[in-house]
Amino acid sequence: MESFEAFFSWLYSDHGINLTIGYDSYDRGRFLDGVWTTIKLSVLSILFSLIIGAVGAWVQGSPLRILRVFIGFFIAFFRNTPPLVQLYFFYFAVGTVLRVTGENGLPQPLVSNFGWAVISLSLFAGALNVEIFRSGIEAVPKSTIEASEALGFNRLQTYAYIVLPLAVRVALPSLGTNLVNLVKTTTLAYAIAVPEILYASAQIWSDELNVREMMNVLLLSYIGLVAILVWVLHRWEKALRIPGYGV
């Protein structure tokens, strides 16, 4: 560890490259906490957005008109508004109403800024996932669904065991694009002070004035994070592959 820190100190003193996260344990701690927060935020948002997407696509095919209209509104609302505005709306508008009394007797928000970021990003990406899953569902041949009905599957069973597994395979490429975008959209949580990587880096560069260095670190960190996600998605795609079926 000492030679590691010495290297970064030398980099600064001899080359003027001020990577404080290399030699200052406080800044490194802040930065690593930021990376961890981004990972948590991404994983939770991806998970919930997939659930919202799958459930939404199922409801979209519902025989009940009111449910279909509701989902239509939901998609229109989250697809037609910028995610930053949604975040502000949840945190500053909805968050002000949803309050509980804290231990010190003063009102506190029911949901933390991290909580709102997960909710907001999940709904945003979830709305897009509904459309992506729908495109997959529509690619499932009608004859397959008729076959499952003939075997006595009800609507939910047909969806869960036949349609969704096939639809996911078809939708996977565009789903991947949306999830990669979701990871990058987590930077917006900066606006409501969720300490993710961008926030941590901005704190560091406003204290240490090493904007140039931290910008590079930030870019490389995202390249790394997204590369991991792309790799996982690729593995998933491979594992799901059915020999002889479509893609």
Binding site: Y91, F92, G95, T96, L106, P107, Q108, P109, I192, A193
Partner: peptide, 18 residues
């Protein structure tokens, strides 16, 4: 430290007990 971009955001967060 929960840092915001501007004074209005920070005071709004203070006012709602964040």
């Amino acid at each position: 430290i929960v840092a915001f971009a501007g004074v209005p955001e920070a005071t709004a967060a203070l006012a709602n007990g964040s």
